Simulated scan of single mutants.
Amino acid sequence: MTRRPPRQARQRTPRGASRVGQRFEAVVGPVAHGGHCIVRLPEPESRVVFLRHAIPGERVVLEITEGTDGDRFWRGDAVEVLEASPDRVPPPCPYAGPGRCGGCDFQHVDLARQRALKADVVREQLARLAKLDRDVVVEAVPGDEHGLHWRTRQRYATLPGGGRAMRQHRSHDLVPVDTCLLEAPEPSDHRALDTTFEVADGGFWQVHPGAPDVLVTTVLELLGPQPGERCLDLYAGVGLFARFLLDAVGETGRVVAIEGDATASALSATNCPGAVVRPGDVGQVLATSYDEPFDLVVLDPPREGARRPVVEAVVDRRPRAVAYVACDPAALARDVATFAELGYELRDLRAFDLFPMTHHVECVALLAPR
């Protein structure tokens, strides 16, 4: 699928006197979606602070980085640790920390605890948005080196006088760097399960070298495609899942791949000979085409999720199983709730640490009729 670039922080109109730079001592609360923890300041401030560079349970001195008297919540950094978590480690990167590079969220956290924190986030989003109480385990994926050297595609900003830079968190301000420790020594070879795919320059492909294999294997295991079945691959990208669905359903089966990016869609036709390939917005295509029943559906939407119109269109085709690949647990939980309204329940869930040192986590969910 084609991922959209990350959004830039919105410029906000001040709602009173600024609190930026003020410091408070506090005990850190639970982790929250987005790479920060929750701190609740007592009166007279009575504010929630979304705090970076901390671990739940620590006692810290925090400094406000965004916030005014009229804001419902503030943002901050832990600038001094008074009582450290046993899971706190020295960041491997010299550019990680308050006021430095904003690319990583958890370099100060032991890798096993990072995965536990991500599991907490997925669990909390499912409970809050889908009303599901489900245990979650975030699994390590081969291909990184203790959480480093996994980004097979890396972009740097350029300093005015030349040289590499990264950006501060929620800022355009540049931080000079020599290199990023997440960068892989080799670019992606665009292979999955010993199959090579054509990908456009700058086109989307999973950046963790272990991601294509683990995602394809997981989707196939959850769906269990059989010869002769009909499959829909939505937000199909260059055909990563469609290619292997074709092999599974054989000549008597059918695979329809729909992708909004015209270049990626054209390449999926090359990568998936035998598939029916349709470029166009997924929701619009499903509203007018391919309204016959399908046995299986793969959903790999962008960060905002599939959303109700697409979920309704999928359910209308009455598949026996849906594999939902999600890079955002909140969007996944919202769509799982919509599926539940329409009679499809969450049968299985796998979560993978495809973005170590950051707050991002990839999930694969199996949905099926109740």
Rank of each mutant, 00 (worst) to 15 (best):
T65Q: 05
Y95K: 09
R191W: 01
L342C: 09
V276N: 02
D261Q: 07
V177Q: 01
A130C: 03
A192M: 05
L129R: 14
F197L: 08
D328A: 09
T217W: 07
G163M: 02
F197N: 07
R12K: 12
G228K: 14
T218V: 13
A365H: 03
G57C: 11
V138K: 11
Q168H: 01
D328N: 14
R191P: 04
G210F: 08
T2E: 15
P209L: 03
H33W: 13
R4L: 07
R15F: 06
D348T: 03
D105T: 08
L346Q: 11
R47K: 15
P369N: 06
D353P: 01
K118I: 13
V60I: 11
A211S: 12
E45W: 11
L182I: 08
V175Q: 12
H36F: 15
Q22S: 09
A313F: 00
R4V: 00
L332N: 07
V122D: 02
L111G: 00
E312L: 14
V175G: 13
F73R: 14
A323N: 00
A264H: 15
A119K: 07
V81W: 02
E259W: 14
R100T: 10
E124I: 02
R134F: 03
A262H: 13
R75A: 15
Q11Y: 10
E183R: 12
R243A: 15
T218K: 10
V31W: 14
G21L: 11
P30L: 02
G250K: 09
V28K: 06
D105Y: 03
A96T: 04
G143A: 05
S18K: 02
P160E: 11
R19G: 00
V28I: 15
F244P: 10
A112V: 15
R19K: 07
A365T: 03
